[in-house]
Design a protein around this nucleic acid. Structure first.
Lengths: 244, 244
DNA sequence: GTATATCGGATCGTATACGATTTGCGTCTG
DNA sequence: CAGACGCAAATCGTATACGATCCGATATAC
């Protein structure tokens, strides 16, 4: 399960807006190091993440053929990979469709899972914290703050992305790449849910991140663990209204 | 060979409830062919699990075409899915190859991960334990014992499968399918490693399972958690010699 | 008017053909 | 004798064609 984290990172830096309008247009010949299949993968992945394709919606391969102007093969390959990651499902002789929306039960399980992993990871991160780590972490937090103050409403997607990045950075510092990749993978699924019920998940999250940062900066393992636990529990409560 | 005893390797998708040929009608109602892609997937999956394809080995699509006597398309699709699950890797213009052998670092991370999840899961399983659960669990343990006494040396693969099933059953009882799927997925990767260094992982494991069973049967949450922790830690030590 | 049956469009599944790139081996040259 | 260049085989990437299956609409019968 090493792939998800990589793709996650790429998508983080890629930032939506990849203009796929002209494939062979213009003067810039495409440097095909990745192959079309990867391009298709990213395109569909972004469509999923931005809710351009809603959960449960059918994804016709011919539609993608026309839209992306590539042949069946790379599309099938990309779709197969997405299926392996659980983002799309395939039913024989019917076709692909985006994975269904998360259920209440799965929501509970997800938070149970996170509470088992992330507080402990925050504790370890506090022990291994260094100046560089702290700098990057603060940078991410600052980006979220500015984004929140300005055009938050328009780009909640960007905020959610940064939030994921913030948590991922802490996982990186904690050191266990396996746990980090798993959580990144889980978050990928969860992201879609969050976008649909984003409500007011911002102001409070910002201050909670701040509290966590203070504890991490001080190398306070107990405080970091507690702050992370509180953050996740409150996040859960904030999103729970979606099922009310 | 139609359906492995333990159906691991299924996606840990958000949707879950994957109904691949889920019709269980009384008669022999025509069941829609799963499609060649699924057959290819299973074939390659088994080849990976039985070390018929060693870690790091290149997997040529044309080779599979000749061997399985199907066209490129279903093979590509199956390979794409396996890539999404991290069991194979693809490098552009070079081709597919089985995922590389597990590293020492990853080994450590895996056990760290398990120790975070499984003892807690054992504790919850002890609380929710019922008669039916206990019966199935004992049945699995008994199968392992008889297998061990008889032709263990020949079919360590079968033993490993049962061990995975035993742990999976406990995860099922614990109730969190997300954690359960994640661990099953992890185990899929780990399985390959275990097969290569199976050493003498049997006698001790059996008695540890017995200890765990006693605690679970008694609904002793503290004892179950402790037994699971001890079991995993000792399992780690038994396999650690592979890196000596 | 409703329900059933049949027909047509659309989509998936499969197979084959062609072009692009890498890689390994052989040969030539310094 | 060693290294580099180049050619050929193998393999991947891509595109297109054909058959099987499913979904929806229309027409007809009751």
């Amino acid at each position: 399960m090493s792939a998800p984290a990589v793709t996650m990172g790429e998508s983080l830096s890629a930032g939506g807006a990849n203009s796929r309008s002209g494939l062979h247009g213009g003067g810039m010949a495409i440097q095909r190091h990745k192959g079309l299949a990867d391009d298709v993968y990213e395109a569909v992945f972004n469509k999923l993440m931005t809710l351009d394709i809603a959960p449960g919606t059918r994804i016709t391969v011919d539609g993608l053929v026309r839209e992306l102007e590539v042949s069946h093969t790379p599309i099938r390959e990309a779709l197969g990979r997405l299926e392996g990651e659980g983002l799309v499902v395939k039913t024989h002789l019917v076709g692909y469709s985006a994975a269904p929306q998360i259920t209440r039960r799965r929501f509970d399980e997800l938070y149970e899972f996170r509470l088992l992993l992330e507080p402990e990871a925050a504790r370890r991160a506090a022990l291994r914290m260094g100046e560089e780590h702290l700098g990057k972490l603060r940078k991410t937090a600052a980006s979220m703050a500015t984004l929140s103050n300005s055009r938050m409403r328009q780009s909640y997607s960007g905020f959610a992305r940064l939030d994921a990045h913030f948590h991922d950075q802490i996982m990186e510092i904690a050191g266990n790449t396996l746990i980090r990749d798993t959580l990144a993978h889980l978050h990928t699924h969860f992201h879609i849910f969050r976008l649909m019920y984003h409500a007011r998940i911002t102001e409070e999250a910002l201050s909670e991140h701040e509290t966590l940062l203070v504890a991490l900066a001080a190398g306070d393992e107990v405080g970091a663990e507690r702050a992370m636990r509180a953050h996740i529990e409150r996040s859960r409560e904030r999103l729970l209204v979606a099922f009310a």
